[in-house]
Design a protein around this nucleic acid. Structure first.
Lengths: 147, 147
DNA sequence: ACCGACAACTTGCATAATGCAAGTTAAAAT
DNA sequence: ATTTTAACTTGCATTATGCAAGTTGTCGGT
């Protein structure tokens, strides 16, 4: 069972503080999925890493507590939730991009994840822009004013 | 007791792969300390977050396995080890800087950690350059050829 | 050479987080 | 009305973490 985690800051270092939020094996993978245009619980679950439902549920709750993500009910199906990134959450794109570039540079076996239209290593600025545009288009479609 | 951790990649996503290495609560804090000029076991232990010795030992081992850090014996005292970042490890500066900027922007309570001469949020390029220069000077002093 | 102090780990053990399978609840589809 | 579906919960075994104490190999002084 997933028990409480107070996210108590261990020090006043900004790095320590944000590692208390995103410094685990799963949180940033969920944010990655959201950046790539996934929005539903089952979509996160079906990612190749295979997160289990209790952990996913726990992380979605914590990300909401930190205002990294929010959700709306699917307009045509009340039992479905559509999660999306806030502005704060979208800005993790820079962190995730940095991690991916590091990985691609030093672990040659890795391949860019499908969905990043431009290779985030070759042209990160363009890749970022495309991702943010896609998210913006989605928000407009679902009448979300200000991520 | 700290048992083995295979660092098995959960998928072919570069993000997932590097989260298997740095995606925990402690690893990047050690790298931060190394970037700030710390080099010894006890220095890492005395950081405000208070890592315990078994975890520290375990993470140092894993970072060596990934060629993120290496060590030399202290030239005047064989019982002391001097850890330092490889080129691969130093490049995590971009990731750590990104996390710090995110934290400083969205969690106003945080203060820049002492030692980052220029605020990494205001002038990241300069802060990075100063940090890398300091590390380079240390390596020259200890005759380390190529981090 | 002896002895206490020191640095870098190990080890034991209690507590917490994770992974897996199965169960629950409410809305949707048939 | 019954079955599916989506989003969680719950139980429980396994693994990781946190803390205190112990170990090993210097080092420094006498």
């Amino acid at each position: 069972m997933v028990t409480k985690n107070e996210h108590l800051s261990r020090s006043h270092c900004p790095l320590a503080h944000c590692l208390d939020i995103v410094g685990d094996h799963w949180t940033l993978l969920i944010v990655r999925d959201l950046l790539l245009g996934k929005h539903e619980f089952q979509e996160f679950q079906s990612s190749p890493e295979g997160i289990s439902s209790n952990i996913l549920s726990n992380r979605l709750k914590k990300l909401q507590e930190q205002d990294v993500i929010r959700w709306i009910a699917h307009p045509e199906n009340k039992k479905r939730k559509l999660y999306y990134l806030t502005a704060k959450g979208k800005e993790l794109l820079y962190v995730i991009g940095g991690l991916m570039r590091w990985s691609l540079k030093y672990m040659p076996g890795d391949k860019p994840v499908p969905g990043f239209v431009a290779d985030i290593a070759d042209n990160p600025a363009q890749a970022r822009q495309e991702i943010l545009q896609t998210l913006q288009a989605w928000e407009t479609e679902y009448n979300i004013e200000n991520g």
